[in-house]
Design a protein around this nucleic acid. Structure first.
Length: 210
DNA sequence: GGTAAGATCCGCT
DNA sequence: GCGGATCTTACCT
C-alpha cells in the first residue's frame, strides 16, 4: 500500500529500539497545532537515547516524576526542562519495559513559518528557526504542557511520512553535549542540510563564583 | 537540607 | 571562542 503523505505514521513505527527509529525519522514531517499557531517542520537531526543500558539517558536511573512518560507507551512526546530555561522534545519509542526516546534536535520549517518567526524574534535566518533542540521547541510552541501528548494521532502533534532522505544522505556521529557514552554514534542528521545544528562536544561548566 | 551539573542558547570579544 | 543566564533534578550528607 502506498504511503499517503497526509496520513499519520503507524503506531508500530515507534515500537522499536530508539537507535532504529531515529534515522527513520529524518525527513519526516512533524506538525504541531496549538492555539497560538500551527507549525510543521521536516526533521533534519535527531539523537537516540535508550534506557537502563545508556548512562546518558534520563531513563538510566529508573522512573521518576520527570521521565515517567519514557516508561509509558511508544509514540508519545517526552518534554523536559533543562539549563533553567530550555525545553527539549523527545519521541518515546521502544518495546514496553525498554524505555527509550529520540531527541528532536533540528528541523526545517515547512508550514506556519510566520508563527515560528513570531515565537523566535531573535532568529536571523529561516534555517535558524529550529536549528537546535531548544530552538525547535520554541518554534513549535512546545513546553511541559505537551509532555505525554500522543504524536501519532493526538490533537496537538501529528507525524507525517514526508520525504525521507536518500540513504546516502544520512550521517551518524557522537551525540552532542553528552558527557557519558560520547563514543556511541547515535546522532543522525541529513548531510548538507543548513538547519542541522553545529556539533558541540560536552563542556562541563564551572560553578559560578559568588 | 545543601549542592553540583545539566541532551542549551545568546551576546560579546 | 567564551561566559552568563536560570532552575530543576538527583545525589550527597
Amino acid at each position: 500500500m502506498t504511503e499517503d503523505p497526509a496520513a499519520a505514521l503507524d503506531r508500530a513505527f515507534f515500537d522499536r529500539p530508539s537507535p532504529e527509529v531515529a534515522p527513520d525519522l529524518l525527513g519526516r514531517l512533524l506538525r504541531c497545532t496549538l492555539p497560538t499557531g500551527t507549525v510543521e517542520l521536516r526533521l533534519t537531526e535527531v539523537e537516540a537515547y535508550t534506557g537502563p543500558d545508556d548512562p546518558a539517558s534520563h531513563a538510566y536511573r529508573g522512573r521518576t516524576a520527570r521521565n515517567a512518560v519514557m516508561f509509558g507507551p511508544p509514540g508519545h512526546a517526552y518534554v523536559y526542562f533543562t539549563y533553567g530555561m530550555h525545553f527539549c522534545l523527545n519521541l518515546v519509542c521502544g518495546p514496553a519495559l525498554h524505555p527509550g526516546g529520540v531527541l528532536l534536535r533540528a528541523g526545517r520549517v515547512t508550514e506556519g513559518i510566520d508563527s515560528a518567526r513570531r515565537r523566535r524574534p531573535g532568529s536571523r535566518r529561516d534555517h535558524d528557526l529550529a536549528q537546535g533542540p531548544a530552538r525547535l521547541t520554541v518554534a513549535l510552541g512546545v513546553d511541559r504542557t505537551q509532555d505525554g501528548e500522543d504524536v501519532v494521532a493526538g490533537p496537538v502533534f501529528r507525524l507525517l511520512p514526508g520525504t525521507p532522505p536518500a540513504p546516502g544522505q544520512i550521517r551518524t556521529g557522537p551525540r552532542t553535549g553528552v558527557a557519558a557514552a560520547a563514543d556511541t554514534p547515535w546522532r543522525f542528521w541529513i548531510e548538507g542540510d543548513p538547519t542541522v545544528s553545529p556539533y558541540r562536544a560536552h563542556a562541563p561548566r564551572r560553578r559560578a563564583a559568588k
